[in-house]
Simulated scan of single mutants.
Amino acid sequence: MRIRNEDVLLPVSAVSAFPRPHWLQGRILGCGDEPTYRSHNLRVAYEDACKITALEQERAGLHVLCDGAQYYEWEAPGFQLEPIFHFIPENLGGITNYGPPGDGAKYAPFYKGQVISKVEWKRPIFESVNYAMKNATDRPFKIAMLGPAQQSIILDDQYYGDGVALAKDIARALNKELRYLQDLGLEAVQLIDVLPPYTTDMWQIECQQILFEGVDMMKFWHVCYGSVDGQRDIFDDHATEMMPLFRESPVDVVHLEFTNKDFAELDAFGEFPTDKVLGVGVVDAKNTMVESVEQIADRIRRALKVVPADRLLVAPDCGLGYFSRTTAYAKLRHMGQAADEVRRAL
């Protein structure tokens, strides 16, 4: 994989989430017409937390860091849903910060923002995240965000009457965000999507093409099988059906969960597009047991039987935000050591 104009064999990265220090609590960033930070003390604490998560990733030998989503309330039950439902919409024009309950018992506690007018980019969303990470590390890092297709289906559309049109306007708004971040020096972005296992309609890729127009940075796509409260949403295999999406996507890296599914879908990736890097989950993000270096190395070697080392990225299955800091960073360190062991043997 090409990183900062150098070819890196078996690069290592994480998905997005790490547990927060116990002294960082509550919502950090404002939304709508609020100030960027909800208090100066929160800003200082948040930026310190970013320094910790960056340092831990550096120590583990990661090549592309992530921001660890330290602005999310990981310590609160259902944390993943509240920011996923609200963080981006509450900072876009045309969407209210109130609405009806989500669909089904799992999502009912989290309201859907209502789309009441044309969705537009209103203010920088991740500028503070980019600033905090640039001050925390000299290594390349990525900022994660929910993809526009995924975001569109968890909103209450009272304006468009057309889900695809809504998704494309979200993509146009977030394209402005990415161009803004690119001008600030951001080197990588990661989309998070749960939608592809449910539908392989190609309008999702049309949204990605709009999103990434004029955006020249590393593009990661995490296709998530669900991890809310440590539980998976997707139990059956969909890799074969998703392969056309992967072929047409403008991203550089497609990342999926493999370990928790015991590599059940691995053979399907013999058809994985040769112009992309496959991110293979080799650390279980739903099991608190810390895998040994040799266990993880064996998983990497297993993946190498299907995808060559120059097109393989090593990563956890999903975010590690649900774990204690001790467990999360131990998993990360062992993953980095395992990748180094396999790399040296190639």
Rank of each mutant, 00 (worst) to 15 (best):
Y46E: 02
L312I: 03
L184I: 06
M289C: 12
F126A: 03
R325M: 15
G32D: 04
R299E: 04
S249P: 01
L278P: 00
R123F: 10
T199P: 08
D193F: 01
F85I: 08
P35R: 09
R325L: 14
V290I: 14
A165H: 08
V119E: 00
I143R: 04
Q204V: 01
R333Y: 12
P109W: 08
Y71V: 07
I116S: 01
D67T: 09
L184G: 02
I95D: 00
P308C: 02
V282C: 13
T288V: 12
Y46C: 06
Y37R: 02
A49P: 04
T36V: 15
P316F: 00
Y46L: 05
R344I: 10
A76S: 14
K122S: 12
L42T: 00
E294K: 12
A45Y: 07
A14N: 15
Y71P: 08
L92E: 00
F246C: 00
K331F: 01
L313R: 00
L320G: 01
P100M: 06
V253S: 02
V44M: 12
L195Q: 00
L181N: 03
P196S: 00
C66M: 09
P197G: 04
E82S: 11
I125S: 00
R2T: 14
Q231M: 13
L195V: 02
R333N: 11
Q295C: 11
K122L: 14
G32H: 08
R123S: 06
G214V: 03
V223Q: 07
P316K: 01
F246M: 15
C66Q: 07
N130Y: 15
A54W: 04
V228P: 07
V15T: 07
Q295V: 10
L174Q: 05
E34M: 12
K168D: 01
Y107R: 10
P316M: 06
V8C: 07
V64D: 08
A60R: 06
Q114A: 10
E120A: 13
L174A: 06
M133N: 04
I210V: 15
Q70K: 05
A17C: 15
F246E: 02
Q231S: 13
T199A: 10
S292H: 07
E213F: 11
G93I: 00
Y37N: 08
M243P: 07
T240G: 12
F269R: 00
G99I: 04
D201T: 09
F272P: 05
D275V: 09
V12C: 05
P21L: 06
E265T: 15
G30K: 10
S117D: 10
N135G: 15
M1T: 13
T96L: 14
A338C: 10
H63R: 03
Y198R: 09
V44S: 12
E206W: 05
D201C: 10
Q208L: 12
Y198H: 13
I28Y: 06
V251Y: 03
V8P: 05
K261A: 15
L312P: 03
L312G: 04
P196L: 02
E90P: 04
E58Y: 02
L178H: 01
F220A: 05
V254W: 03
R333L: 13
G32M: 05
F272H: 03
I154Y: 04
V314T: 05
V115I: 08
E6V: 13
E187L: 11
Q151M: 11
D275F: 03
L278N: 05
L211S: 05
T259I: 10
Q158G: 03
D103G: 11
